Simulated scan of single mutants.
Amino acid sequence: MKRLLNTSLFYAVFGLAAGLFYREFTNVYNFTGWTPLSVLHTHALMLGMFTFLILLLFEKVFHITQHKKFKPFYMIYNIGLLSTLLMLTVRGVTTVLGTDLTSGANAAISGVAGLAHILLTVAIIQLFILLYTIIGNENNLVKSSQKE
């Protein structure tokens, strides 16, 4: 449970810092347009902090971290989310600075962001499989105890 709480706290601090960075960085450069930095903090807070707070509740009720399918989900989800946040940061900073990216650099940023989103998708599918497995087992235990 402590790992889930610590992970949630990490993303909360990251998200709050990202919001501050967005505000100050765009002010320093007098940037008024749209930048991916404007959604960086909400991605960190919602996909990071809130997701792991909700998983903390599932842990309390279902002990999901004890299941063998949890560790792969946890690792893939965090790699995907951290990569997504990194690419939002890179794309946002280059946007604010007005950096002219080569087509290769632009493609690399988009490619890594796409792979990160694929990892998040795979992890979310893994999470639902895990939850269905656990809840299915809970229902089987209830049915078998009612028969006795």
Results as ranks from 00 to 15, higher is better:
63 H>C: 11
64 I>Q: 08
65 T>Q: 11
66 Q>E: 15
66 Q>I: 11
68 K>Y: 12
68 K>R: 14
69 K>I: 01
69 K>E: 13
69 K>H: 08
70 F>M: 11
70 F>L: 12
72 P>C: 06
75 M>P: 07
75 M>L: 15
76 I>R: 04
78 N>D: 05
79 I>L: 13
82 L>W: 00
82 L>V: 03
83 S>Y: 05
84 T>Q: 02
85 L>C: 04
86 L>W: 07
86 L>I: 09
87 M>G: 04
88 L>P: 00
88 L>Y: 00
88 L>G: 00
89 T>N: 03
91 R>H: 14
91 R>A: 12
92 G>V: 01
92 G>H: 02
93 V>K: 01
95 T>F: 03
98 G>V: 02
101 L>S: 08
102 T>A: 12
102 T>M: 13
103 S>P: 15
103 S>L: 15
105 A>C: 03
106 N>P: 06
106 N>C: 06
107 A>Y: 06
108 A>N: 07
109 I>C: 06
109 I>N: 01
109 I>Q: 08
110 S>E: 11
114 G>W: 02
115 L>F: 09
118 I>F: 10
118 I>G: 03
118 I>T: 09
118 I>W: 04
119 L>S: 07
121 T>S: 14
122 V>S: 12
123 A>G: 05
123 A>T: 01
124 I>L: 15
125 I>T: 09
126 Q>I: 10
127 L>W: 01
